[in-house]
């Protein structure tokens, strides 16, 4: 069992969060990720959530389900979830399931943040 955190979060400004999940996430450790993200989701001052998947190596359908739930929950309050930089196998799962049809996907965090600026402007 690795001691490294499953997900790190960084609040960039008053309303943008970058969350960086690490390693393999599946049904067994998904609750841990949910617990970390929960207070951020409940903080309504935070509008944009960027999920940087660069260091995510595996997800299962439960995690995809959670991401869909996250998107739906945020979208109901006019908040946004953006997916960023998944490796090949993870981005394959995103696109196979159709997640990228409902959640915007970007190749890098900068591109995602720039898109937020464009939307805000």
């Amino acid at each position: 069992m690795s001691d490294s955190p499953l997900i790190t979060t960084e609040v960039l400004n008053d309303h943008t969060v970058i969350a960086r999940p690490v390693g393999e996430i599946d049904a067994s450790n998904l609750p841990e990720m949910e617990n970390i993200l929960m207070p951020l989701i409940q903080n309504t001052a935070l509008i944009d959530f960027v999920l940087d998947c660069e260091n995510l190596t595996f997800i299962d359908s439960k995690v995809v389900g959670y991401m869909a739930y996250l998107h739906t929950t945020l979208a109901r309050k006019n908040r946004r979830l953006l997916l960023v930089a998944a490796n090949e196998s993870v981005s394959d799962i995103f696109s196979l399931v159709g997640l990228t049809e409902i959640i915007p996907y970007f190749d890098s965090t900068d591109l995602a943040l720039n898109s937020l600026k464009t939307i805000s402007a």
């Binding site: 995809v64 869909a68 196979l96 399931v97 159709g98 997640l99 049809e101 409902i102």
Partner: peptide, 17 residues
């Protein structure tokens, strides 16, 4: 080949996909 589309139950109307 990719099956395409979006999983059932994710969005109410998947006609475009």
């Amino acid at each position: 080949i990719r099956s395409g589309g979006i999983a059932l139950g994710m969005i109410p109307d998947s006609a475009k996909i």
